[in-house]
Amino acid sequence: MMARPRKPIPGVDARDLIGDGAKLLPAPSRRLFLRGIVSVGALATLTGCDIIDGSTAENALRVVSNFNDWVQARLFNRHTLAPTYSESQVMRPFRFNAYYDEDDAPEVDGDTYRLQIGGLVDNKKPWSLPELYKLPEVSQITRLVCVEGWSAIGSWQGVRLSDFLKLIGADTRAKYVWFQCAEGYSNTIDMPTALHPQTQLTLKFDHKILPQAYGFPIRIRIPTKLGFKNPKYVTAMWVQNNDAGGYWENQGYNWFSGL
């Protein structure tokens, strides 16, 4: 993009910016034009400049984004539940969403699949799907909100993550839970969210084994976070004290992304 002279405060001296254009106008309207260009001119300059659109600005803005993580962690209330909906409000078929086409969604072999467990847990035994399907099931009909703005109501069944963490003897004083996915995707979430009663190790969608499109064999369903913080095709879970980041978070999306 073209670099242009820029003023931090709109309208302070618009002449530099629009002088050439104003010369094309007759004198009286030129003065009027210069006087009042304030908002319109500033909009054009603010949005057309590589400094404010580029990585320089984004790096500075990430400082505020980190502050927003802190704010959101304090706004998060472990007793506040996401609104739930009725069966008839479930979107069928549910929307497929990923940064790749549905045809490219990972194909996980359910027979050989093992959920790897690691980090600050007592029992690191990997879990097969039949073992996971035997655990007590919880169900929820909640709204998945995408960072893009759209939302969809879905029906998810699986194991309450806080129950599962207890079962494997996880140290719930640890700060984070990190998830690794079959296609290379990853997510780190905060422990308070992991222990939220609606956070679910999801094995089914709409009471049927999770289809490939929606994350077979495991999705972590977190109705208190944006969709991209709900990893699919999960193959490993680590309880740890260091923030291992995530696929989108590392590119500039807000880390906490709470709802």
Partner: peptide, 17 residues
């Protein structure tokens, strides 16, 4: 051309700052 932030993540950073 008249929007700010270049892409979704950039725009979200601007919006929430």
């Amino acid at each position: 051309q008249i929007a700010l932030g270049n892409w979704l993540a950039g725009a979200l950073l601007w919006h929430f700052a």
